[in-house]
Design a protein around this nucleic acid. Sequence first.
DNA 1: CGCGGCTTTGATGTTCATCAAGTAAAGTGG
DNA 2: CCACTTTACTTGATGAACATCAAAGCCGCG
Lengths: 224, 224
Amino acid sequence: MKCECEHCDIKSIFFATIKEDEIEEYCSSRVEKEVKTGDVIIQQGQPIDDFIYLKEGLVKLYRDTPGGQQIISLGKPFDFVSLLSVFANDNYSYSVSAVRDCVICVLSFKEIRQLIQENGAFALKLVSTMNKASERILFDYLDLSQKRLNGRVASVLLYFSEIYDDSKFDLPITRKEISQLVGMSIENVIRAISDFRKDKILNVYGKRIEIVNKELLQKIMELN
Amino acid sequence: MKCECEHCDIKSIFFATIKEDEIEEYCSSRVEKEVKTGDVIIQQGQPIDDFIYLKEGLVKLYRDTPGGQQIISLGKPFDFVSLLSVFANDNYSYSVSAVRDCVICVLSFKEIRQLIQENGAFALKLVSTMNKASERILFDYLDLSQKRLNGRVASVLLYFSEIYDDSKFDLPITRKEISQLVGMSIENVIRAISDFRKDKILNVYGKRIEIVNKELLQKIMELN
DNA sequence: CGCGGCTTTGATGTTCATCAAGTAAAGTGG
DNA sequence: CCACTTTACTTGATGAACATCAAAGCCGCG
């Protein structure tokens, strides 16, 4: 197993803060795993033994609540999967599952802890990167909660358009999952998408989405 | 200036991880400041030079948005004020102001960073404590967003009852601030409080609140 | 005493959830 | 492969929850 991934934040942090010979050690303990769509990667309540990083695919962070599943955030390649509670609790306070087929990079959490203890530069870089991600999650949620239905759905569509870097893409999540992500009923999420289609902002063929009028969609995101 | 505060988390972290003689250094750089109600302690966008901790009083963390002020969280004594973005950004991404007269404890952020670099045990403890607080903020917000008006207002009232450890207390924030905290209109927040009063769940005399039927209020919080 | 901010209540309309009913797509066992 | 089941998706109708507008009382402060 080599450390060959190009855009890996963890690798960058390692190379910026750790001596060459010590990096070997990290590489040897690292394991790549393939995960199928729908598979649960982390189960709420589970002890935190691994430190997980997403190399390929798409995951969702979510909580199970009395009202159903609440999606906290989506994770795209090179995002941390172990987040938030990792340095705070012994057990995960949320679940993570694969929304698409994924490749995850699994490190020993004990070793990461060890490294933080031993290497201050590493500690600062890692904590900084992870806190930035956690802050992004909170602020995205705060932003979302200020918007109304159409604005929320618009922001989800624009998010996917951005991570695929294309105005045409296949929705990687179901409409139900969109509704759990934006905190509105599935029927109204579908209505919002239908409205966009009727207003010629989108072309919709099932999962296939084509954003026709991006400017207007962005306006809707900002104003609704 | 002595390190005499009884319940100070930072102090606990220091004492658990740092040698006696080095603690002296920390104590000497520490400054206590009094802050009056309404004063801004941290302004969004400001560079992060200090590491701030709340000793007495009550603060609000908030963002200014096009729709008005959005309150992210309230901070009570022994909560961190510098949070979230502290290790992620160079500037604060939120504002903090005193909701009541406060006493804050100001440390040099540079020194805290220095300590993290030098002392792994300190780094882990501090990051753990701060992440726990950040996670609390996010999860409280997620919980709140699942509730309806009455449930949200009930949870705010119960929160104050808890921090004052009394069923009778003076609301430290205005009704408008409650509305900015729960993300609903001020009129409906007032209506919720009035409803509780009419249903004999509360006695209300302006800022003065007496929770008469705590069990029912908790039920409302859970079910609404 | 008068002004401005906070509070309160009522009336009205918008936004959204829910129920109902049906279509389409995808998996399952014979 | 087809009948069958399940899951995802879609639209319309209805009512609940909430925002907004309007008007008025309260209170502190210059």
